[in-house]
Design a binder for these strands. Structure first.
Lengths: 234, 234
DNA sequence: GCATATATATCGTGC
DNA sequence: GCACGATGTATATGC
């Protein structure tokens, strides 16, 4: 089996055949002149231009332009793909929930490639989850006498990253942020604290490598605490 | 000028030349066998496999696998690209703020394409911004007697989507959500209300096409209001 | 499927 | 450059 197959300047009909032959087994990469119409949660148009179209076998559709990390238009995994040949070649990708459609009107196909892509295994370190794991393993990193009780403690107003008790036995709600904490993080913590303090006395601690000025003011005003997290803690 | 140039199974040296020739003017598309190391805000490894590498002339780097809409690894616009030829071909993309690096170790190049991509113009409708515009143009869509005063009214605790007065002259803070409103939207509105009510009596209204059950309970408990938005309003 | 929260989120805007 | 909030966010997880 070839690793990839390429067609240069194919006709609409041969691209249709190419797509139906390979769309379930290969990643398709098309460089075309096209315009695009999207309707669904919003509605958009992309006028005539050259665009890179990628279709993955899981149904993902990406339409990339000449810059930016984000595709101009897309469809997530699980989307269908159909083609129609009219004056132009029409490619339609549909998603059911929410109901969304991307219609690509292709006037010229520069090239099309089908590749047999076997991706490697991916591992990542340094997420928020690992900050929590570290505090569970070494509770003194948060503060002396802290005892973790429950990870992802559920309340009607959201899930607490880590619930514990301090050395005096007071409940402590801990919210972790891997980046600089902003206003929204303080709001989030406040929401949990407001719920739990109806039942018990409770402290709220926001753990992050930094905090914005506004967020710091707000956290003080609301009687919550900020604990700076040194990422070298391990 | 050709619309695209392709090299099949190029040597490391010829790919290096290809990249330096075209990286500032073309989008590069490489299908290779490689492994990838990322360090920066987090740290990750991607083991040996076949991956699609896209490099845009704005510096964007995308490393796609066989599924999902998101790239496995990436670098945003503004990133640099350098190559080194050792036992394998090493591609390194760097970003300065934050300091981040993606290192690609390439063992085999299936093909490389440089494309001259002139993207079309993009327009979108149905964003939150347009909901606000509609209420400003037709304030009665929010409620009878509402008068808009200020778009993006700034407070130390965030910016209010729309500030206005009701028919009795009471200040009204309006927060818009284009999708179903969740707990975080209620928190956000509460933050603005808490700030402004220190100075004036104030109402807070959350406008969205729907609201989750928890968010609805919370909004009532906090004395705020929910106004269902009918998207057909225009 | 719904709701919640994270993300190497990215991106645009205002200061 | 920082901070804040929107995004057709996508993605994972728990229910």
């Amino acid at each position: 089996m070839e690793k990839y197959l390429i067609e240069h300047n194919p006709s609409f009909e041969s691209l249709q055949k190419f797509i139906s032959n390979y769309q379930n087994t290969h990643m398709l990469i098309l460089f075309v002149s096209c315009k695009v119409f999207y309707t669904g949660r919003a509605k958009s148009t992309l006028s005539w231009g050259d665009h890179l179209i990628i279709r993955k076998k899981d149904g993902t559709l990406l339409i990339h332009g000449s810059n930016k990390r984000e595709p101009i238009n897309w469809q997530p995994p699980g989307s269908s793909l159909k083609s129609k040949c009219q004056k132009n070649l029409i490619l339609i990708s549909r998603r059911k929930h929410p109901k969304e459609e991307v219609k690509i009107v292709v006037s010229k196909i520069y090239f099309a490639v089908a590749v047999d892509c076997r991706e490697g295994k991916f591992q990542i370190l340094g997420t928020e989850n690992q900050m929590v794991q570290q505090v569970i393993a070494k509770p003194y990193l948060l503060e002396e006498g802290f005892t973790p009780l429950k990870r992802e403690f559920q309340t009607p107003y959201g899930n607490i990253d880590l619930l514990g008790k301090d050395k005096k036995g007071t409940f402590v709600i801990v919210e972790f942020k891997r980046g600089k904490a902003q206003l929204s993080a303080v709001s989030q913590l406040k929401r949990y604290v407001e719920y739990l303090q109806k039942k018990h006395p409770v402290r709220g601690i926001l753990v992050a490598p930094g905090i914005t000025k506004s967020a710091e003011e707000l956290i003080k005003k609301w009687g919550l605490e900020f604990k700076k997290w040194l990422s070298k803690a391990s």
